[in-house]
Design a protein around this nucleic acid. Sequence first.
DNA 1: GAGACTGGTTACCCTATGGTAAAAAGGGAA
DNA 2: TTCCCTTTTTACCATAGGGTAACCAGTCTC
Lengths: 186, 186
Amino acid sequence: MINPNAYITIKNLLEFNISLKLGLTTKTVQKDTVFLEAGQHCHYFYYIVKGFVRVYYIGLDGNEITHWFSAKDTMITSPFSFFKHEENIVYFEALEDTELLLINTTQLDKIMSQSQYAEKAYRNLLAEFAMVLSRRIMSIHNETAERRYLNLMQSHPLIFQKAKLSHIASYLGVTPQSLSRIRKNI
Amino acid sequence: MINPNAYITIKNLLEFNISLKLGLTTKTVQKDTVFLEAGQHCHYFYYIVKGFVRVYYIGLDGNEITHWFSAKDTMITSPFSFFKHEENIVYFEALEDTELLLINTTQLDKIMSQSQYAEKAYRNLLAEFAMVLSRRIMSIHNETAERRYLNLMQSHPLIFQKAKLSHIASYLGVTPQSLSRIRKNI
DNA sequence: GAGACTGGTTACCCTATGGTAAAAAGGGAA
DNA sequence: TTCCCTTTTTACCATAGGGTAACCAGTCTC
C-alpha cells in the first residue's frame, strides 16, 4: 500500500529549509534505477517530489518481494536502518523518473524541535503508517487474494499504471501465476 | 506480536501525572473480561501496568482473529478509533487479571506539549510499532506458518504461557487444526 | 465417580496456491 | 516487418492449509 499522505508537504519542507537553514538536498533518479540497496545504510527520510517508488526485499527463495509502493507526495525510509541503525534489507527502486528530497536525522530532529506543527504532523504520519500496516495484516488474515487484489485496484489504481503485475503479485502475497489466474476469474 | 517496549515507563507517567496534574485514572479488569468492544469508541491509550491483553476482531466468517498480544509495561490502543475517530473494530480482552492506566487524548497532548522527552519517546514508540508491523508482514509473505510459529515461540515465549493455542493460531494466520498439525511435525 | 465443558488433536477430503515449464503476447529497435 | 527481449498467461501436477466432524484429555461441578 502506498504510504499515507504526507502531512508535511513539500511546501512546508521548503519553508523549513529556508527558515531553519537545513540545507536540504534533492536527488534525481532515472526510471528503473535502484537508489537504495540492501546492506547500504539508509541515511535519509525521502520525500518523493515526483515519480513512483517500489520498495522490495529478497525473499528466502531468492525472489524479489514487493513490500510497498510509494507515490508522489509521500515519504519513505528504511525504518530499521534509519531509526535503529540495524542492517538495511530493502531496496528502493524508481519505477519512473523520480525526484527526491533528502532529509537526514539531524535535519529531521531540527524540524521536530523547532516546529510544533511539524512535530505533530510527523507523529500523525507515523500513527497513520502504523494503521495502514495494521489494516494490511488484517486484510491478509481475513481476505482472499482475489479480494485483496480488487481492494488494491480500487484504493490505489495508480499502482496498476506504474508497476508490473509481478510486483503487485508479491505485494499481495501470491505468485505471478496465481495473480494471473485470479485476474482470469474476474 | 507484543507491542514494542514502552519508552514512556509507568514511573514517567506517574511523574507526569503529578507534575502536570493529569489526573490519570486506573482500571482493573478481571481475567477473561472484554474491556473494549467493537463499535465502542476507544477513548484511551492504555498502559498495561500488570496483566496480559489480547486484541482481536471478528473475521468475515465470524471467527475471532487475534490481531496482537500486549504484555505488562506496553501500551495499546485502537488506532483507528483513538486517533481518527473511525469505527472501532477490535476487542480488548484481558487474558489474566489486568491493571490499566488510562490516558485520554487531552492528557496525551498535554504530556507531549510539556515534555520534550515524552514527545520523543512517543515518536519512538510509534516508529517502533510500525517496524514491528512491517516485519510481521514480511514474515507472512516470506515464511511458512511453521517458521512463524517457531519464531514466535522464541521471541515471545510469554504468549505461550498466557494465550490459548487457538488465539495463537489466528495470530499466525492459520486455523487451530493447522497449528496442531504444525506442532505435531516438530 | 459420572456428567458436562473446554481446549486441543486427529482424520478425512477439498481448495487455493505454489513450482516448473512452456507458450503467448507485447513492445521496442533495426 | 522481423527479430529479440520482457512480461504475462496457461497447463500440469504437487502441497500447504482449510472445513467438517469426530475424538480425546483435562478440569470443574455435583
